[in-house]
Nucleic acid binder design. Sequence first.
DNA 1: AGGTCGACCTGGCAGC
DNA 2: TGCTGCCAGGTCGACC
Length: 274
Amino acid sequence: MPELPEVETIKRDLIPRLKNLSIVHTKIFDNRVIKDLNQKTFESRVTGCTISDLKRQGKALIFYFDSNQFMVVQLKMTGQLIYSKAFDSAARSRDTKVVFTLSNGDFLLYNDQRTFGWLILTESLQKISFLSTLGVEPLEKTFTATRLKAKFLNRKAPVKSALLNQHLVAGIGNIYASEILFDAGISPVRQAGQMNQEEIVLLVKMTKKVLNKAIRLRGSSMRNYRDAEGNEGLFKKHIKVYARENQPCVKCGELIVRIVQSGRSTFYCEHCQK
DNA sequence: AGGTCGACCTGGCAGC
DNA sequence: TGCTGCCAGGTCGACC
């Protein structure tokens, strides 16, 4: 799925288009993507709402409605939010799960090939346990070496798995975890709790650098990611290790290796990352 | 409590 | 061509 840079890109694209528009009609084509409410209740409660703001927390996108309600969207692996001038129900993609008709006559589509993602309507964000347990936002000033060191204290999990843990740091996924560790020169198999001060500082610095660069380039599209206009991201061309097994390291030329950690692929250079 | 694994789904691709 | 098995950017609950 979209990680932090992709969700941030979608959010920035959608804000100027959606702000102050109302939802005049809602159609759910697959109720598996709606959590906690049945289809009819969700449709009737969201219809009529005016979108006052859009925010991101970790990889979640939050619609702020004027009706004292919030809609939390988790795109997971293959979810997309696409702003569209037209929607023809006869021609709709099989992946289109929800269609919001907007007060200006345009449409917001929720597409999801694998149906992993979900939408929640709530009156209180505190009730959404996923949000209330999220870790520090890596692009905010509160993400410091002191903070990360405290998060990693006594952690025996590999540093790669710790970076993926949303309760510690919010928004880093499998692509950027590998990229951050490569830029920091740190091996993904090292224990998180064993990072020294210098390495912690480097991890904070490279996390911000990699995520900011990915946002500037509008994210990475490996497979399904598209921005709100349906376009691919450009960071893919700047990826140094992810999905580059057996290809030469951009720094030293040795071959990138793939290992599995916590059931997820990790890519790294054994020569450059210690 | 912390860490790992399988489940949730669908589709693309490599290999036979 | 068609089948099988493996792989995929995330989270969650069960288990050790």
